[in-house]
């Protein structure tokens, strides 16, 4: 079936709401407004106010309430409009959701699913363009996933809801309008393993979420000059699937991490470190990364685009790693 990423996530939520009484959606403007990114549009009519619950602008309170409801036996999907606003509920996520199981000696679990939009690229300026996935991926007790394909957008929610621990799903805003063909039988996908989205022998491009599109385009571009890039889609940002990453890097002997987070302390840095710990002697070239420049995202398009990872930067970085300066 042909559908957009937005529709795929909506279908996943609809299915979850139909199949499990304990599931409900809550967040700012998920009901009457239809969702800030129109992901939940129509669900209010179908499931009613109890289960499609509009909240006031109280991120800390409603995320905390989602955590509490999960503790109390429900399976909440809490939509935090965007990662930018999740900073107002960072405390609840890091100090409560992530810690309860551990602090209680395993007695309590928090099966909450938090969904949030992430990423830049729409000229929304510095406060509305963050990619802070790596902050959450830093925290033990959380599972962090990022769909990059239509199948994953459709299938990851179900696995997330089945997880007994808190899961954060990062949805890159640039994906929602993308369309694709979704096989009929996809309602669940693997979230524990990274996926090889393109095979190649010369260099591994490791990415996730909104940047898979750019990495694949870069791989196509490189292929024109005979460079076969392997593209790894992480899917899970915590835990990281070291095995898939290392298998690829041992084969290609070169790797570039692509990450919309800022350069310093990025997820790219973490992955690079793991590779050097576990595959240093398999490498033929220094590891490299393409990240966002260390500047708050500027409003004008030309500056914003200059700050973000681009197909051209990935391509030239790959040539640099391969020693083919152009």
């Amino acid at each position: 079936m042909n559908m957009t990423y937005r529709e795929a996530m909506r279908a996943a939520m609809r299915e979850a709401l139909q199949q499990d009484e304990r599931v409900f959606l809550m967040g700012e403007d998920v009901g009457r407004y239809g969702g800030c990114y129109a992901v939940s549009k129509g669900l209010l009519d179908e499931f009613g106010e109890e289960r499609i619950r509009d909240t006031p602008l109280s991120e800390s309170a409603f995320v905390g309430a989602g955590i509490g409801a999960a503790l109390g036996g429900m399976r909440p999907i809490v939509e935090v409009m965007t990662v930018n606003f999740s900073l107002l509920c960072l405390d609840q996520i890091v100090n409560t959701a992530a810690t309860l199981r551990h602090m209680s000696g395993g007695q309590f679990s928090v099966p909450v699913v938090l969904r949030m939009t992430t990423g830049a690229g729409r000229q929304l300026a510095a406060q509305h363009s963050h990619s802070l996935e790596c902050w959450y991926a830093h925290v033990p007790g959380l599972r962090v996933i990022a769909p990059a394909t239509l199948e994953d957008m459709r299938g990851m929610l179900r696995v997330a809801l089945e997880d007994p621990d808190p899961v954060i799903i990062f949805e890159h805003n640039a994906l929602y309008n993308r369309e694709g063909e979704l096989p009929d039988d996809v309602s669940v996908t693997e979230i524990r393993r990274a996926a090889v989205r393109r095979t190649g022998n010369h260099i591994s491009l490791i990415c996730y979420g909104g940047n898979l599109v750019k990495a694949l385009e870069a791989a196509d571009e490189l292929a024109k000059s005979g460079i076969e890039a392997e593209v790894i889609d992480l899917r899970s940002l915590r835990p990281l699937d070291d095995a898939t990453i290392l298998t690829s890097v041992r084969k290609t002997r070169r790797a570039i991490m692509i990450d919309e987070g800022w350069h310093s302390g990025s997820l790219a840095a973490e992955i690079g470190m793991r590779i050097s710990e576990q595959a240093f002697y398999d490498l033929d070239a220094p590891l490299a990364r393409v990240c966002t420049a260390e500047v708050p995202i500027p409003y004008p398009s030309h500056l914003e685009q200059a700050a973000l990872p681009q197909v051209a930067t990935i391509v030239s970085k790959a040539r640099e790693v391969l020693g083919q300066h152009v």
């Binding site: 590891l287 990240c291 500056l303």
Partner: peptide
């Protein structure tokens, strides 16, 4: 339009120590 070369401006007070090198080469 501000020149792209100015991208890293205004992150810190202008000084020698203020500029983090842009994604350096390998």
């Amino acid at each position: 339009w501000e020149p792209v070369e100015d991208l890293m401006k205004y992150v810190y007070t202008e000084s020698e120590n203020s500029v983090i090198p842009a994604q350096a080469g390998i």
